[in-house]
């Protein structure tokens, strides 16, 4: 069974239709890149999958392992294994990162009927993952993302991805605001999480990220739907030809 099936999805924000009949199927183990110009609806797609309020689905459906995702609350989706790495992770002053990580992880486990992590097991796990992502321990004591650099914020997203072990990771413009070194660390973190069970949807404006996270499929989005699908070579073609050909269509 497909992990994620987006079928003929139509989405409005206020009076404007952003997605007009978008379809996408993602199987376990696959890495899909979604590319497209600004305003093509890439981020809207990621938000609707994660359950962000403010979007009205006027048609179509989203199935996650055959279940209707649109019927679920955002936290239920997370517990089922949907993870959105935010383009702009928010800062939450007063909530220590460590406390947040533990609360979130245990909330997900509780929702799945699993036992909560013991403190030593949790700490061990956080330490391992944060070390591999080059995240210093004192960062985890600070408020969530408070005073973090752009790169640190993105690494914090990947840290969560590694901890929560989702089956679908949606990376929304992970490369925005990152320099080459920060990008490499983040991409290495993501690549380490690739597995046969886990699928990824990598949303990006630029081909550059795909040099580091090599996709199985590349979809081009324009004006609210997928206009072209191909292999990883499609990204390179786009780099040369640009998006204009799709926008004019």
């Amino acid at each position: 069974m497909a992990l994620l099936e987006v079928k003929d999805l139509q989405v409005r924000v206020e009076d404007r239709e952003i997605l007009h009949g978008l379809s996408l199927t993602v199987n376990p183990g696959e890495v899909h890149a979604i590319m497209g110009p600004n305003g093509s609806g890439k981020s809207t797609l990621s938000h609707v999958i994660a359950g962000k309020p403010g979007y009205e689905v006027t048609g179509g459906q989203i199935l996650f392992r055959g279940e209707d995702l649109l019927e679920m609350e955002p936290d239920e989706r997370a517990a089922k294994g949907v993870f959105l790495a935010f383009q702009y992770p928010v800062e939450i002053p007063g909530v220590a990162t460590m406390n947040f990580l533990r609360t979130a992880l245990n909330a997900q486990r509780k929702a799945r009927g699993e036992s909560e992590y013991s403190t030593p097991d949790f700490l061990k796990k956080v330490r391992e993952v944060s070390k591999s992502l080059n995240i210093p321990q004192d960062m985890l004591k600070r408020g969530v993302n408070v005073g973090f650099s752009g790169g640190e914020k993105k690494r914090n997203e990947i840290l969560q991805m590694a901890l929560f072990e989702p089956s679908l990771c949606i990376l929304d413009e992970m490369d925005s605001g990152l320099d080459i070194d920060a990008l490499r660390i983040a991409a290495d973190g993501v690549n380490a999480l690739r597995s046969l069970e886990r699928a990824m949807v990598v949303i990006t404006h630029y081909q550059r990220l795909l040099n580091y996270i090599v996709p199985d499929y590349v979809h081009v989005m324009a004006k609210g739907s997928v206009v072209k699908t191909g292999g990883k070579e499609l990204a390179l073609q786009l780099e040369e030809s640009g998006y204009a050909q799709f926008e004019d269509a």
């Binding site: 962000k52 936290d75 997370a78 947040f100 609360t103 979130a104 909330a107 997900q108 969560q160 929560f164």
Partner: peptide, 9 residues
């Protein structure tokens, strides 16, 4: 939304 997307009811 950020917290809910991380699994908090």
């Amino acid at each position: 939304f950020y917290l809910r997307a991380r699994g908090l009811p």
